[in-house]
Nucleic acid binder design. Structure first.
Lengths: 210, 210
DNA sequence: TGTACATCAGTGAACGCGCGTTCACTGATGTAC
DNA sequence: TGTACATCAGTGAACGCGCGTTCACTGATGTAC
């Protein structure tokens, strides 16, 4: 029963369907391995429809990034804000990273594959970097809030804490890519927390209890 | 002046020349971006010569890995053995990683690109994993020696210390790939050392001085 | 030392394939009157 | 409410290209006598 839709509605719906299909196919096949044919087919359209909504394969992936990053940042901020202690806030974030890595083990490798691809195309590289910077900024802001709230200091710039944490997580995802039994998530959670703690110290005005 | 060479000599020389060219082209263009045509041409041969020495593009890359890993492991062990203190041994290793990342910023991304490619081909994945495992074993052995020599203990299995350190380094290389000004090497060196120290504690028989 | 045959490293061209992108076209939706 | 024209989301086929791999062949090296 084909419901009659207005043109912008139809267009938005098609775009969303293609985006959903793209996410599934990219996660399954990787950035190079995923073909626009397969994505279009999985969404129930032809390749041309993809080009009607997205300028290129790269733009399609960027749209995916935007969607995901927005979601992840919001989830992260929320988790930090409701946490009763600093430990709880950090652990909640570590656990979120861990659960996502468990549910979608190919996401980090996919992102990395895109980065290496983008690094060879200056426009795409700039676009990917802009997104990454936005994520780092958002996480850094969250880290600053946490430090203020719980009366501690970061020993390096919060943005670099965010960078180091992300880099460590992505590196560990790669280990799992090669050897799925490596770096089990529980182990990762503890190591991640340990890493974060090394960047913390009590505020000078604070007697010294973490 | 064409020197007359024996057949095995000629063959070994050609293989070495192709390997050298492959290293240069792979580092420059990435794993997917590098074509066998370009590698052969850079070595002064045709594509057929590559197939006369290597079964496939993947095998060619594996040969490169073997060469490099052997070299890196030996260099690492050597640095650790001549170091007068634990701090010096760890710093020497951190610095080596850092200098290599500086000299060949595309190596880590290249390795990672190969890993994601290999992860989709079970034979290649097994081959890549076997090499990675050998590296982890060698580093772990070095860490055990260091711990014994300087009377300290690792709080997690040395192999997992090696894994975490490598993962962190690779993650940071990716940051630099997207933004060459990010994570400058000096900063990385300190963060890397901090990470390693969190995995250390004095031996129980030791009064408590690290 | 010389000759006849065997081997095989490397050539060069062809094969086979998949992919991202483009484009003329279609038919349903939108607009003007 | 109805008609005539304009728009444009999505189609389907073609384009253009590069790549990894294969293979019949060649000529220098090796071997046997």
């Amino acid at each position: 029963m084909a419901v009659r839709l207005t043109r912008p509605e139809r267009k938005a719906r098609t775009r969303a369907e293609i985006l959903d299909a793209a996410r599934a196919v990219f996660l399954r096949e990787g950035f190079h391995g995923a073909s626009l044919d397969e994505i279009a087919q999985e969404a129930g359209y032809t390749k041309g429809a993809v080009y009607s909504s997205f300028a290129s394969k790269g733009e399609l992936f960027l749209a995916l990034l935007d969607e995901r990053f927005e979601w992840r940042i919001a989830e992260s901020l929320q988790a930090a804000r409701v946490a009763p202690t600093l430990e709880a806030a950090m652990r909640a974030n570590a656990r979120m990273i861990m659960l996502t890595a468990q549910r979608e083990p190919t996401w980090d490798p996919l992102l990395i594959e895109f980065w290496t691809h983008a690094s060879r195309d200056s426009e795409l590289r700039a676009a990917a970097l802009a997104r990454h910077d936005r994520v780092l900024d958002a996480i850094a802001e969250m880290l600053v809030e946490l430090a203020e709230r719980f009366d501690v200091e970061w020993t390096v710039a919060p943005r670099e804490v965010a960078r180091a944490g992300g880099a460590f997580g992505r590196g560990m995802s790669l280990e799992r890519l090669l050897d799925p039994t490596a770096a089990p998530v529980a182990t990762f959670e503890e190591q991640f927390l340990t890493l974060l703690r090394t960047f913390l110290r009590p505020t000078s005005s604070n007697g010294g209890s973490p």
